[in-house]
């Protein structure tokens, strides 16, 4: 390998052009308008667009050719099989992984995993990871000057039950500064990695919190270009999930989509 082919160290994830928030917000608006125009002229556009240059690090990392439509084969219609023994019950509580209690607003996040026909997806794995209440990730590449919390790692796992339900106890993550552009801040979010009953249904996404003032400014959230799809990523405050003197509750239901063949695969199970 030649010297030129070796990547620079990734200790700085800064985009080189140092755009302003005003410029990024304008780019987001233009991209959304262009996508709406394309849809009006009959083009089918996915919920998340991978060609979204306002998210600077996507510029060299998104495929430029159309995805090829293929009939799924058996291995793609089934999924790795998880079970309750894969995950300890304590792994869904991110507030008890250390000797003390983490700082921040304690949350219950609960939801149901279904397919596009509303059928529950039981016994599948959900992984989450997030920043702490100060907006700091425990990852060594996150070096911004917010405090680490010795009582919070920020990673959890759960297996859905027979009704497709999952629940996590955690704390509310803070907003997170990043280097996509000058003074860039991500809205508070929890990363979700979800397995369906078919490998084709694999989903990685992020859950947000209602009313975040950073929504319109964030190029990652806005890679989802339709308002109704962005709304689906915002957890819903649910007072029935809130527990007295303990935690506020948010509901986040997840729908994994697959090709038509996944309908047959899961009938009669």
């Amino acid at each position: 390998m030649t010297a030129e082919a070796i990547a620079p160290p990734v200790n700085s994830l800064a985009a080189p052009d140092r755009a302003s928030q005003r410029e990024i917000t304008a780019e987001i608006g233009e991209l959304h308008a262009a996508l709406e125009q394309r849809e009006r002229s009959g083009e089918a556009i996915p919920s998340t667009v991978i060609d979204f240059p306002a998210y600077r690090s996507s510029i060299l990392r998104h495929p430029t050719k159309n995805l090829k439509l293929v009939d799924p084969e058996t291995v793609e219609l089934l999924s790795p099989a998880f079970g309750q023994r894969d995950v300890g019950a304590v792994e869904s509580d991110l507030t008890i992984q250390h000797a003390g209690e983490p700082l921040g607003e304690r949350l219950t996040v609960r939801g149901r995993l279904t397919d596009s026909w509303g059928r529950p997806v039981p016994n599948q794995l959900i992984e989450i990871w997030q920043a702490n209440s100060a907006g700091r990730y425990i990852h060594q590449r996150d070096q911004h000057p917010a405090p680490l919390d010795p009582n919070f790692t920020g990673a959890g796992r759960a297996i859905t039950d027979d009704a497709g339900e999952y629940a996590f106890t955690t704390i509310k993550p803070g907003p997170y500064p990043w280097k996509n552009h000058v003074n860039a801040w991500r809205p508070a979010h929890i990363h979700f990695s979800v397995f369906g009953s078919s490998f084709t249904q694999r989903l990685v996404t992020q859950m947000y919190f209602p009313g975040d003032p950073l929504f319109a400014l964030d190029p990652i959230f806005n890679t989802i270009w339709r308002q109704k799809d962005r709304d689906a990523l915002i957890g819903v405050y649910d007072h029935d999930l809130t527990s007295e003197e303990w935690a506020t509750g948010y509901r986040f239901d997840i729908v994994v989509d697959g090709p038509d063949a996944t309908w047959f695969e899961n009938e009669g199970e």
């Binding site: 990363h191 990685v204 989802i224 799809d229 962005r230």
Partner: peptide, 14 residues
């Protein structure tokens, strides 16, 4: 289909 699919997002750096 009766339920709209939850859209995907990047895994991010961490």
């Amino acid at each position: 289909r009766t339920h709209r699919a939850t859209p995907g997002q990047t895994v991010g750096p961490f």
